[in-house]
Amino acid sequence: MTTNVGVIGLGAMGSGMARSLRRRGSQVHVFDVRAEAAQAFAADGGVACASAAELAAQCSVIVSVVVNAAQTESVLFGEGGCAAAMKRGSVFVMCSTVDPNWSIALEARLAALGIFYIDAPISGGAAKAASGEMTMMTAGKPEAYAAVGPLLDAMAAKVYRLGEQAGAGSKVKIINQLLAGVHIAAAAEAMALGLREGVDAKALYEVITHSAGNSWMFENRMAHVLSGDYTPLSAVDIFVKDLGLVLDVARASKFPLPLSSTAHQMFMQASTAGFAREDDSAVIKIFPGIELPKKS
């Protein structure tokens, strides 16, 4: 693959995705609001761009890996945005977790400019992004897939094609985030109860991870708690946002989500208590009367 492809947003996921594309033979152009991140990527091969517009002028495919819909709007239509610089027939791949209705509207907005759109939220974490083994939940028109199929396969081990209209990928991602958020909150509650009852935390972790009560989130996130390391791989405020989106989608159709509502309140409490930018496992810090493991 020698396609000129642009990646906007070099955070934990975007940087890994850019490296996966480079490893598979693409000429990768990158832009990030932190110029040093783009320069660091370019130092190992690739092209650092000073703006999204500069990147768009050189690439027929742009992969956007920013935090939310507002940042995506800025990337496309803000000062130095890429939409005005993209050629007709180019493809914009949107990887953020957003309201599905916003994604549907964005597809129409870009179509009016002659730009194809892939609704493509991602999951799997930084390690899988770096190794090209993450999951993409995608939806888009056949013409868009024809242009970017090999690029998607270079970034992800699983590329699910969920429909020909934007929104389907974002709906599935919203449901995934419902489960992820509830599972983290439940894992924190279980570990907190164990600590309150004087159970050895390492022994509890060992037993649960080999028993029916285990979940991927318990196994992954409670390891952070055991090590006392709350360096954010996915921050508390990510789930304030994502569970908020879950509840917004359900509220529109008057659909009850009691577990999601409780988990959202737990992350809101953790955020307000000063843990907004810590790892999402820091939701355990809202429980009173427990002594958490210290950083080893």
Results as ranks from 00 to 15, higher is better:
M1C: 12
M1T: 15
G9E: 09
L10T: 01
L10A: 02
A12Y: 01
M13L: 11
G14K: 06
S15C: 00
L21A: 05
R22N: 00
S26Q: 12
S26F: 08
V30F: 10
F31V: 05
V33G: 00
A38Y: 05
Q39R: 09
Q39W: 02
A40S: 12
A40K: 06
A42L: 12
G45P: 03
G45E: 07
V47D: 11
V47N: 10
A50F: 01
A52K: 07
A53N: 03
E54G: 01
L55W: 01
A57N: 06
A57Q: 13
C59I: 02
V63P: 01
V63S: 06
V66W: 06
N68D: 15
A69F: 09
F77H: 14
G78R: 09
G78T: 05
E79I: 14
G80P: 13
G80N: 14
A85R: 01
M86G: 08
M86Y: 05
R88N: 11
S90L: 07
V93Y: 11
V93M: 12
M94Y: 08
S96V: 02
S96H: 05
T97P: 03
D99W: 00
N101M: 13
N101A: 14
E107H: 04
L110K: 08
G114M: 11
I115E: 08
F116T: 04
Y117R: 03
D119M: 11
A120Y: 04
A126S: 15
A127V: 15
A129P: 07
S131G: 08
G132C: 09
E133V: 04
M136R: 08
M137Q: 05
K141D: 15
P142C: 06
E143G: 05
A144F: 02
Y145N: 02
A146D: 11
V148Y: 04
V148D: 01
G149L: 13
P150R: 12
A154I: 04
K158S: 14
Y160A: 13
L162I: 11
L162R: 09
L162H: 12
L162N: 06
G163C: 07
G167S: 08
G169R: 06
G169M: 11
S170A: 15
S170N: 14
I175S: 11
N176Q: 01
N176T: 02
H183W: 09
A185M: 07
A190N: 10
A190L: 11
A192S: 12
A192G: 03
G194D: 05
G194N: 06
L195M: 08
R196K: 15
V199L: 15
A201F: 02
A203T: 15
Y205L: 07
E206G: 02
T209V: 13
H210S: 13
W216V: 15
M217P: 03
N220S: 12
M222Q: 14
M222Y: 15
V225R: 06
L226N: 08
L226C: 10
S227Q: 14
D229E: 05
V236W: 09
D237F: 03
D237G: 00
L245T: 10
V246H: 11
R251V: 09
A252T: 14
P256K: 11
P258M: 02
L259E: 09
Q265T: 10
S271K: 12
T272F: 14
A276E: 05
S281P: 03
A282W: 04
V283E: 04
V283T: 09
I286A: 02
P288R: 08
I290W: 04
K294V: 13
S296G: 08
